[in-house]
Write a protein that binds this DNA or RNA. Structure first.
Lengths: 234, 234
DNA sequence: CGGGTGTTTGATGTCATTCAACTTACGTGG
DNA sequence: CCACGTAAGTTGAATGACATCAAACACCCG
């Protein structure tokens, strides 16, 4: 795992002696505002939805973690108020946790680990910057189309077929829109770019055409760097 | 400056021998996509707008730097495509620059510097997360009101008066809305929360009332932590 | 087969953008 | 110091995008 690449054996020893394994059933809550202390966690199998809620009950998805993605490192320096986050298992799930106190000790003591965190922090920052941009200037169909372009990853031929990364209602929330809007956005892409939708299966007959529709309202021109945040589901 | 707090004297020596001072007139371009290499920069006097543009010419403000804020550290690991960013001086401006190659060398060699960058990177990430949330679930008046609440910083009495952090058209772009929308949002806050507007001067007679209006669509409850990103203008 | 969940579709309302007209503020040169 | 020109800010009307509510439909699982 790249987070621990070139980390000292001393650190690795501490990690492996302290880390705890956990298993959760699909739909169960990993942590929420009432948890005593939010730990640092690394998903080993399955996926997790991390979100917060507004006072009115609206849900904002902060991240969707797939295998070997991790969460909670920012709490090491008490930057964020960790009481507002909730994590739930999107599938049957295995993960390992480390107490924040140990992680802090490790980051402060192990230069390579700090560098590794710094790199991924910059990447996550870049990802968030993209989301801000898209929410500000793209419409629903373009946000969706951009995600599809980044998901299908620069295919081989002219057209390509692949499954949606998440089910539609989760995808809608992730993109900051209602399920109804997502549905209409899909049919809009079908009309304008000949996108095909069969259940979870998406077909893009002409990537160029889709990117012409999507990328005019983006600072990056297709093929843009993959900062999708989407990893294969386990 | 906190970025260099507890950094080794060896690093500091290298920095002070390599850093270059620059001065710019208000409105001039500091760097853009055509610059040869984007350096790391620290503003010493004045403020800078960092933004990118979509293919259609729409502007997204990435950050507005005030004195002693810095920019460009993420390019050290080649995370971002730096060709899409532009920086212009919002006022007469002094800044210092470091070549990215030196900064990389310093970060890799100086553990404390890496830790300092890591801390601020987490803070910036938190700030971006808040922006995503606000764009997704708050309306224009609430986004504006939230910024005002964070700007006036938990005042002493019941009411408070202070100047807008930027002029109105810049503020509108920063909040991801049109100048017309900002204007209407201000008058909406005037109607609903008795906010007073006299040129650049804002008066909040009742902070509680404003926060009731604003914070119901936010995951943080007022008084929220200051992650405004706004610093005093020089 | 029946019920529940997830998805689609239509009608309607709200909010932000767009475009245009107008007003205000500000800096420059006469 | 005033007059002018330009930029910035405001306001109104029309349009467009998304949310909301309600109903219909599809699909899966027991």
């Amino acid at each position: 795992m790249s987070l621990f690449q070139q980390v000292s054996t001393n650190s690795l020893k501490k990690i492996s002696s302290t880390a705890k394994k956990h298993k959760y059933k699909k739909g169960s809550t990993i942590f929420n505002g009432h948890s005593h202390e939010l730990p640092f966690l690394i998903v080993t199998q399955g996926s997790v939805k991390i979100f917060k809620e507004s006072a009115e009950g609206e849900e904002i998805i902060v991240d969707i973690l797939a295998s070997w993605q991790y969460y909670g490192e920012q709490f090491v320096f008490n930057i964020s108020d960790n009481e507002i986050y909730t994590g739930i298992a999107l599938s049957d799930l295995s993960l390992i946790t480390l107490p924040l106190s140990l992680l802090k000790q490790l980051v402060i003591g192990d230069h390579q680990l700090a560098i590794n965190f710094l790199k991924t922090s910059f990447e996550k920052k870049e990802q968030l910057e993209m989301e801000v941009e898209h929410l500000a200037i793209q419409n629903a169909a373009q946000r969706l189309g951009c995600l599809l372009l980044r998901t299908c990853k620069l295919a081989t031929g002219k057209g390509i077929t692949f499954p949606l990364p998440y089910d539609k209602s989760l995808l809608a929330t992730r993109l900051g829109m209602r399920a109804e809007t997502l549905s209409r956005a899909l049919s809009k892409l079908n009309r304008n770019c000949a996108l095909s939708i069969t259940g979870q299966e998406i077909g893009i007959p002409d990537i160029e055409e889709l990117s012409r529709y999507v990328c005019q309202h983006c600072s990056k021109l297709f093929p843009c760097k993959d900062i999708t945040g989407i990893k294969k589901q386990s």
